[in-house]
């Protein structure tokens, strides 16, 4: 069951990105280009995607809080960490610069990998190298992990 849930979650996530057109870098960049507001051609679609996603996700979190363990067994995630540190801010800042350069983040990158041509493959390869570089640094000087 856990395996089917994981596969289904990946599939529905990808389909959601395709339905909303958010696997398309041009659409993401059209949202991030807030300067277009002045010309009246700004594309607000990503905000609707986030609103829809967060509404459903928040409902799931409300249900999750009432459960001692997951439906398929095992622990629920612990309470969110509270510390705002340089890693959180610095990492998020770097991530945002990369996101703004190409209009691609990890979910859309993997979703569009098979249909995005050589450019998408180049992005995914570089992203995996970036992730591996972090993993290598982390093994040398371990600190707090993923949240």
């Amino acid at each position: 069951m856990r395996m089917i849930a994981a596969l289904a979650a990946g599939l529905v996530f990808g389909l959601g990105l395709l339905v909303s057109d958010m696997a398309n870098p041009a659409r993401v960049l059209a949202f991030l280009d807030v300067g277009a507001m002045a010309e009246g051609v700004w594309d607000p679609t990503l905000a609707f995607v986030m609103a829809g996603a967060m509404a459903v996700s928040a409902t799931a979190w409300a249900l999750a809080r009432k459960r001692p363990e997951a439906v398929c067994g095992g622990a629920m995630p612990g309470p969110a960490r509270q510390v705002i540190d340089a890693r959180l801010i610095g990492g998020s800042a770097l991530f945002g610069i990369g996101w703004g350069l190409a209009g691609i983040c990890p979910g859309p990158a993997l979703t569009a990998l098979g249909i995005g041509g050589g450019g998408m493959a180049v992005f995914v390869a570089a992203m995996l190298v970036g992730m591996a570089a972090f993993g290598a640094l982390e093994r040398r000087a371990p600190r707090a992990g993923n949240a």
Partner: peptide
């Protein structure tokens, strides 16, 4: 962009 997204995230 890929390097920054992967490492930064």
């Amino acid at each position: 962009a890929g390097l920054l997204v992967g490492f930064g995230a």
